[in-house]
Every structure is written in C-alpha cells, then in structure tokens.
C-alpha cells in the first residue's frame, strides 16, 4: 500500500509539473508576438513594451519559467490584463459556482445511471436493456451545447419551470446540471451495466443464490457493491469530462464559474487569466484522480500488485 502510494504520488507530482510546463508554454504558442495579440496589432509601442516587461516576456525562457514557478509558489498569479484585478481573486470568486455545478451534475448523473445500469443488467437483451442502453447512447451523442439550448427552450420557455440563465433561484442549477450530467450518466450507465454483468457471473453470487437469498438482496447487497469499484475509477476520470464540459455548459447558461471565466478571458485576449483558469481546472482534476486511486487502493487490497 505504501509503495503504491509513493509511486502514485510521484507520478502525480510529475503530472503537475508537466501541466505547469504546458500552461506556462501556452502563451508562447501564440503565433507571432503574444503582446501584439493581446493588445491589438496597432497598439502603441510604449504600451506593448510595458506589457512585455510586466509579463516578463523580454527575459530568456528559462528565467521566465523560473519566475513563473516562484510566483506560483507565492500564489501570485499576476493581474488580469482586462480588469487589472489579481487573478487569484477572480479564481476564488468563480470556484464555488463551478464546484456547485459539478457536484449537482455528479449527483444527477449517479441517480440516473445506477437505476438505468441495474435495469439493463438484470434484463439483459430484453426491451428494458435495449431502452436503457439506447438512452445511454443517445445521451453520449447529444452535444451539451445543443442539449443546453433545447433544455432552455423546453424547461424555461415552454414550461416556465426554470430561470433562463445565471444563478438566481434555487432551481437555476438544474438545467445546466442536467445538461452536464446527462452525458456523464450515459457513460456511467453503460459502465454499471457491464460491470454488474461481470460480477453477476462470479462464484460467490452463485453461492448466494444457492443459499436461497432473494434476487433483490443478491443484487443490491452483494452484486452492486462489488461491481462499483471500476465505476468509482470511471467516476474519477469522468470528472475530467465534467470539468472540461463545464466550460461549454457554463457558457451556454452564463453560469459564472471557472469555465465562463476562461471563455470570457479568451474573448478578451486576457491570456494570463486563461492560463490560470486552465491551471486551476487541471490541478483539480489531477488531485481528484489521485484521491480516486487512493480510495480505490484502500478498498481493494489487490491493487498494490498492479501498476496503475
């Protein structure tokens, strides 16, 4: 267990370092002069030089990298080019909204996926299975930037049940969370089904059956918990899709989270903010994955013999 933790931790650290590198290099990927892109091609020379200096772009690359790492350690992410506010403040303001949206989406996804997957696994190749899996496939294929507007059209406009966008009212989160949660529920339901089918074929369940336990009891108490391990891993991985998808969903619903911050910054050519948002979202993802793996290893002692 400790050995596993150590290797996992070290690979996480390397991952974080790599993400930092890539995010740092992002600004250097801008074709041409990044300062010109940020300020517009006809900006005053003096303004350009001032920005170049404040971003440190006039220094050699290794020096810039070093400065970047040092300021990160001091939690100094610089200032927004657009509003002039410290970027850390902007992030801190937006994090709760994204967190809230992600958690509600996750809840929706799980509450949808578990019964669907159960239904499909217990009625293999029957209409229930086909229906549930058809729904899952549909959910995977609906892009969230289309589902979002359709949900607004139906939920807010025709039915009048939900606020259109923004964060007002307790139910405002439901439409964006449903948009975000559906695709995830689809993938999750497929996973629940296949994982459950695999478990149902195992010996201990036959024993349980032989003991005369009720099918419901076998399913819920013995089969389901044992097939949840792979689902847990998928859940961790899915959070990545969730966080990435949140960028689009937040844009559709004007949900004031990190994703919207990033898109707004892209539109304003405010690259330091884009960098910070990407960094923040990716680091969260890495840490959640680490947590998932640790929980997984803790729950399944066999894991330490396998390399992740």
């Amino acid at each position: 267990m400790t050995a596993f933790l150590m290797t996992r931790l070290s690979s996480t650290l390397i991952g974080i370092l790599g993400v930092l590198c890539l995010v740092f290099l992002l600004i250097h990927l801008i074709p041409g002069d990044p300062v010109e892109v940020m300020l517009g091609e006809s900006a005053l020379q003096a303004d350009k030089e001032a920005l170049r200096h404040s971003l440190g772009l006039n220094l050699p690359l290794h020096q810039q990298w070093w400065d970047y790492m040092r300021s990160l350690l001091r939690l100094d992410l610089g200032h927004s080019l657009f509003s002039g506010r410290p970027i850390l403040d902007l992030l801190v303001e937006r994090i709760p909204a994204t967190l809230y949206l992600s958690l509600v989406s996750l809840t929706i996804a799980i509450t949808l996926a578990l019964p669907l997957g159960l239904l499909a696994a217990t009625h293999k190749h029957q209409p229930w299975d086909l229906g549930a899996m058809g729904f899952a496939l549909l959910g995977m294929s609906i892009p969230n930037f289309w589902l979002g507007p359709i949900l607004i059209l139906v939920g807010s406009l025709w039915l009048g049940w939900f606020p259109v966008s923004g964060q007002e009212g307790w139910n405002a989160v439901l439409l964006p969370a449903l948009t975000l949660g559906t695709a995830m529920a689809a993938i999750l339901a497929r996973m629940v089904r296949s994982s459950l089918l695999e478990t149902l074929g195992e010996d201990f369940l036959r024993t349980a059956q032989a003991k005369g336990l009720s099918p419901t009891r076998i399913l819920l108490v013995h089969a389901l918990p044992n097939s949840l391990l792979p689902i847990l891993t998928l859940l961790g991985l899915q959070l990545g899709g969730l966080l990435g998808g949140a960028v689009i969903t937040e844009t559709v619903f004007a949900w004031p989270g990190l994703g919207l911050l990033m898109i707004e910054a892209i539109q304003q050519r405010d690259y330091p903010v884009v960098q910070a948002a990407v960094l923040c979202i990716s680091l969260t993802y890495i840490l959640v994955n680490l947590l998932t793996d640790v929980v997984y290893a803790w729950l399944d002692p066999r894991i330490q013999f396998k390399r992740p």
Partner: peptide, 24 residues
C-alpha cells in the same frame, strides 16, 4: 508514459480549447 500522463492530466476538451485559443 510520462508525456502521455501529462497530456491525460488535462480534463476533456480543456486543453484543446486552450490550444485553439492560443493558436487563433
């Protein structure tokens, strides 16, 4: 494997969005 791990450390579309934003 390290390089792959790093690229996989970016969630979903995020890296593509950031790259597309930087490249124009």
């Amino acid at each position: 494997v390290r390089i792959v791990d790093i690229l996989l450390a970016f969630p979903g579309l995020l890296l593509a969005i950031a790259l597309a934003a930087a490249l124009g």
